[in-house]
Every structure is written in C-alpha cells, then in structure tokens.
Amino acid sequence: MRVAICEDSALFREGMVRLLTEAGFQVAAAVDDAETLLALVGEDRPDVAVLDIRLPPTHTDEGLRAARTLRRRHPEIGVLVLSQYVRVSYAVELLGGGVEGVGYLLKDRVSDLAEFAAAIRRVGSGGSALDPVVVEQLVSRHRQPDDPLIQLTGRERDVLHLMAEGRTNLAIAERLAIAERTVEKHCTNIFGKLGLEAGPHDHRRVLAVLRYLNA
C-alpha cells in the first residue's frame, strides 16, 4: 500500500517514514506543505494521504482544508488526518456525511504501530478510522429525545462504538473478547432497532455509524 505523508515537523515526518516503512508500507512521498501534496497526489496517486492539520504557510487549518479538497477531488484516495488535538466540528466537516476512506486520529496513536498500521490500511481500502476520543465527543452531543439509539443495550452500544471507530467485526470481537458470531448478532439487533433494512449493497453499517455519530 502506497502512502503520501504531509507533515511540517521534520522530526515527526522522518519518524513516520521510518515507522510506515517498518510496517511494510511504501512511502510514495513525504512533503511539508499541503499545496505540494495536492499537486503530487494528482500525478502519483497513492492509496492513502496522511496529513497534519497545521501546515505552512499560516499554520492554522491548511491540512483540514486540503483533506476536504482531496476527498472531493479524489474519493478513491483514503485521507487520514493526524492532529495534536481532536475537534468535533473538524470531524463533522471532514466526514461530510460519509465515512468511506477517511480517518481522523490523535498523533499519539502512532505509538501503537500495529493499531496505527491497521488504521491506515482500513482508510486505504475505503474503510474508516476515527479516534475513540472523536467518537466519544460526537456521540455525547445533544440528541432528540425520540432517538432510537436510546433503545440500544450497553453491549450493543459498545459494538456500535467500535464500529464507529472503523473496526471490523473480527477486531470488535477481539477487543470485547467475544465470538465474532455474537458480534454479528449484535449488529443485526442494532440495525433492527435503528430501522435499517438490508439492501442490495449492504450499506447499513455506514448508516448505523453515521446515525450513531450524529453526523
């Protein structure tokens, strides 16, 4: 899997290159500003672009804006935003009503190489990777009193939470120390309670997550 990195701190950038190479990724490019990244992605299409939010020239939200542009221009390329802080409003903006090929993680997550590598792979193959902190913040926002999510059991909620982080049923089963079949059963219950009918392309997982994230 080919990864493009955009990070203005040389220390973190070089660390990432080492880390990702170690984890078996091919680092297509490592640049320090969004303009260069956007130009580069157009020619040399990587599978995933990993960006910081604060980038030159103003060091404000260049990375976030570039991520949105990327998602609009190249929906097939996964976009993973890394930041020192996570913000609900940024998450809502980044998702833009879809959770395909998108990720938003705290920079701290690079410390767990296996988890981090798995997150990049998911984003690169059209899945998602949302930081637990982001999910927590999105979920705890105000809700309508008649929200069907209130009917979910504690365990179903745990499953949905991990689903929202972008994890597969197998990963959820491992995390919760239960059988994968049990996770599948929980999923069916969740879809039923949220009133999501099975369709030709099983889109229910995405819809359930979006409903859960209140996005």
Binding site: I53, R54, H59, T60, D61, L64, Q84, Y85, R87, V88, S89, Y90, V92, Q137, S140, R141, H142
Partner: peptide
C-alpha cells in the same frame, strides 16, 4: 495538551473566532 489549551485554545489559532465558536456550539450539551 491541557496546558496549551489553557494558554491559548488551539482551535482559535486554527479556525479563528467563528470556527472556535462553532466548536463550542458543537460540544455544548
């Protein structure tokens, strides 16, 4: 993170007042 948020909210740096206010509105119960 907590200390630097206390010194100056990062969201204010990144998004200016309008973005920061939107963030406050987004996390309000």
């Amino acid at each position: 993170r907590a200390v630097s948020h206390g010194i100056h909210p990062p969201v204010l740096t990144e998004r200016g007042l309008p973005g920061a206010v939107k963030e406050l509105a987004a996390v309000a119960p």
